Simulated assay, not measured.
Amino acid sequence: MAAARAVRRRVARIAATLFALLVSACGQGGPGRDATAAGIARVAGLDADPSTGAVRDLQLYRRDDGKPGPLFVYIEGDGLAYLDARTPSSDPTPADPMALRLAAADPGPAVLYVGRPCQFAPGRTDPRCTLRDWTTGRFAAQLVAALDEAVSRERAKAPARELVLVGYSGGGVMAALVAARRSDVALVITVAAPLDVADWTRRLGLSPLAGSAFPLNQAERLSQVRLVAFAGQKDETVPVASIASAVATLGPSATLVVVPAFDHRCCWVRDWPRLRRLALGE
């Protein structure tokens, strides 16, 4: 019993330390959040590769060890888009970049992480960014084009690799929208992503995302791509129903995987190697 209590105390201390680091990163503003991301990438052997694009400047991290296998492209979530239900943030850079953590946990040979437009240092200094880009217009066609451009540039470096797009939360919506524009995507994996955006905003009582593109508006094109949608059974941020309805619309090419006990954040990173294998059918 004493040993068990000691373990619980140690876990509690670690959790408190991680929480303090996240609070510190938020308090330091964007540069502190940049440093958090750089540290995650450095430990995982992901090299910083900022992209100056025709549409938006993006923060990229990449790794390619030259061994055979697919290229996994990870697209970040919406980040710190709002400070509360009504107050937009002045900087959407995530305090804890979940898609980057998933990329860091990827055991494959080739990984590309793509920050969303207006996130991190490249986006923060991009004069083309406006508040709308991370609020009502967060899924706008021009922002999808910015991500698609970055994917194409990286794809040209390794054209023989299969292309897999992975998106966390709002990044999953963007992954689906990018896939609908392309003909070379072998698989889309979404993690806690509100693929039925209209259903999601209705369920949560959110304002409609005017100016955004929705995956289900391109269902015919997207249904030609294999898609695996992970949902957390206890996720209150993105309810399972807002994912299940999209999967039903997309038909047999799409698969819904509801993970018991998971919510919007727990425990995707911890179990990512296993879930990745499941999505690949390994």
Rank of each mutant, 00 (worst) to 15 (best):
residue 102 L to S: 10
residue 178 V to M: 06
residue 114 V to L: 13
residue 226 R to K: 14
residue 215 P to G: 08
residue 111 V to A: 11
residue 4 A to P: 05
residue 24 S to H: 14
residue 107 P to I: 10
residue 251 G to L: 07
residue 135 T to R: 07
residue 122 P to M: 03
residue 3 A to R: 12
residue 243 I to S: 06
residue 205 G to K: 04
residue 70 P to S: 14
residue 136 T to N: 11
residue 5 R to V: 10
residue 99 A to F: 06
residue 67 K to Q: 12
residue 182 R to M: 07
residue 159 P to G: 08
residue 98 M to L: 13
residue 110 A to Y: 13
residue 237 T to W: 12
residue 94 P to K: 11
residue 128 R to E: 02
residue 22 L to G: 12
residue 83 L to Q: 12
residue 164 V to D: 00
residue 124 R to N: 01
residue 90 S to P: 09
residue 90 S to G: 14
residue 59 Q to F: 12
residue 65 D to C: 10
residue 124 R to F: 00
residue 66 G to L: 02
residue 135 T to A: 08
residue 58 L to I: 01
residue 47 D to M: 09
residue 189 I to H: 06
residue 180 A to C: 07
residue 21 L to Y: 12
residue 114 V to Y: 00
residue 228 V to E: 05
residue 2 A to I: 11
residue 84 D to P: 05
residue 12 A to K: 15
residue 60 L to V: 01
residue 195 L to Q: 09
residue 226 R to L: 14
residue 12 A to N: 11
residue 168 Y to L: 00
residue 61 Y to S: 04
residue 268 W to C: 01
residue 164 V to W: 14
residue 35 A to Q: 14
residue 58 L to M: 11
residue 20 A to F: 14
residue 20 A to S: 12
residue 147 L to M: 03
residue 140 A to W: 15
residue 54 A to N: 13
residue 87 T to I: 10
residue 102 L to T: 02
residue 53 G to T: 02
residue 37 A to K: 13
residue 173 V to P: 08
residue 78 D to C: 09
residue 273 P to S: 03
residue 59 Q to S: 14
residue 26 C to M: 12
residue 66 G to M: 07
residue 197 V to K: 09
residue 161 R to Q: 10
residue 243 I to P: 02
residue 90 S to L: 15
residue 54 A to M: 03
residue 101 R to S: 03
residue 138 R to I: 10
residue 176 A to L: 09
residue 245 S to C: 04
residue 209 L to N: 00
residue 242 S to Q: 02
residue 80 L to N: 04
residue 183 S to D: 09
residue 15 A to F: 07
residue 260 P to Q: 10
residue 102 L to H: 07
residue 39 G to T: 11
residue 261 A to E: 08
residue 244 A to C: 09
residue 85 A to E: 08
residue 127 P to M: 07
residue 146 A to M: 06
residue 31 P to V: 06
residue 129 C to P: 09
residue 273 P to E: 01
residue 161 R to S: 06
residue 216 L to E: 08
residue 12 A to F: 09
residue 128 R to A: 11
residue 222 L to S: 01
residue 270 R to E: 02
residue 82 Y to W: 15
residue 94 P to Q: 03
residue 162 E to Y: 13
residue 139 F to K: 00
residue 67 K to A: 15
residue 120 F to I: 05
residue 160 A to S: 10
residue 222 L to N: 02
residue 196 D to V: 04
residue 242 S to M: 03
residue 202 R to I: 08
residue 160 A to F: 12
residue 274 R to V: 10
residue 127 P to Q: 08
residue 61 Y to G: 01
residue 1 M to W: 15
residue 134 W to E: 05
residue 113 Y to E: 01
residue 76 E to M: 04
residue 251 G to S: 05
residue 94 P to S: 03
residue 133 D to A: 06
residue 173 V to G: 06
residue 129 C to H: 07
residue 235 D to A: 04
residue 117 P to L: 04
residue 282 E to G: 12
residue 148 D to H: 13
residue 6 A to K: 13
residue 217 N to Q: 14
